[in-house]
Design a protein around this nucleic acid. Sequence first.
DNA 1: GATATTAAAGACTCTTAATATCTGTAATGT
DNA 2: ACATTACAGATATTAAGAGTCTTTAATATC
Lengths: 133, 133
Amino acid sequence: MRYSNATNYALHTMVHLMLQPGGSSVGVQELAEMQHLSPTYLSKVLTKLTKAGLIESTPGAKGGYKISRTKHETSFLDVIHAIEGETSLFDCSIHHQGCLIENVMRQAEENMKGELASKLLSDIAKEAESKQK
Amino acid sequence: MRYSNATNYALHTMVHLMLQPGGSSVGVQELAEMQHLSPTYLSKVLTKLTKAGLIESTPGAKGGYKISRTKHETSFLDVIHAIEGETSLFDCSIHHQGCLIENVMRQAEENMKGELASKLLSDIAKEAESKQK
DNA sequence: GATATTAAAGACTCTTAATATCTGTAATGT
DNA sequence: ACATTACAGATATTAAGAGTCTTTAATATC
Ligand code: SF4
Ligand code: SF4
């Protein structure tokens, strides 16, 4: 049980896009090279982010991806949900009412999600910027 | 990304064993029927629990599995570690030093683990017992 | 308008891990 | 000795993740 590589790629891409001056677009070519990936595969990942509204894409010449204007407060959890989906880590198909086991597992997951929701990508971007200087 | 079924089976079995009066042994046959599983498969799962020291097994006639004498404080996390292993949910193979992304992911996972470590199977067993009455 | 550029979508392959079964062996009580 | 039971190994099946290739549609530039 492990987060997929796609989630890793998505996080890196998001941070990179946040560091673009003026929120300009970056093509998948450049993003893929940066992470040593094939552009077509990364493209699939980024399409998920686009559909989730976290980034915006413009096709055609000089197109690419950029941070969504309406989503400058994107959290880690937002990215993870976009890539991994929103199903619970522990999903017993039976669902006995008042299940004690499920309660514990769900609560634990909520604790993790709480942390992930409180951490914004913009914080990481800022830290990364100040490190470079 | 989901907890394996094996973890579910392991948790149910542990609770069931805790409810045995006097900590007596239960055969895999009975444990498997209870959960509608094949005995051989459940056996593999329980062997992991045995190796982790959470339960004790006795082969031969009238044998079976019982809660380990030395482990009456088993937590959810103990079971999960025994079945899923101890690898981190987010393991980037590169490990740049001072990686900001990894920090966040690790902290979030710790929050989940903290909750899972604080919940004991004996609590669940007690609750289940009082419900039956 | 023609052309180059780029994202999106679909079909497909490859790899890995989870799930599960079958068979045989070793240990234990009766 | 015999029945019972956990354990180990080999194997098969399934599902998901990871990745490639090809085609299509949208956009800018000339
Ligand atoms: S008790 Fe909870 S976890 Fe177990 S089978 Fe019922 S719903 Fe699922
Ligand atoms: S920055 Fe962190 S997550 Fe990204 S490649 Fe480096 S170590 Fe891995």
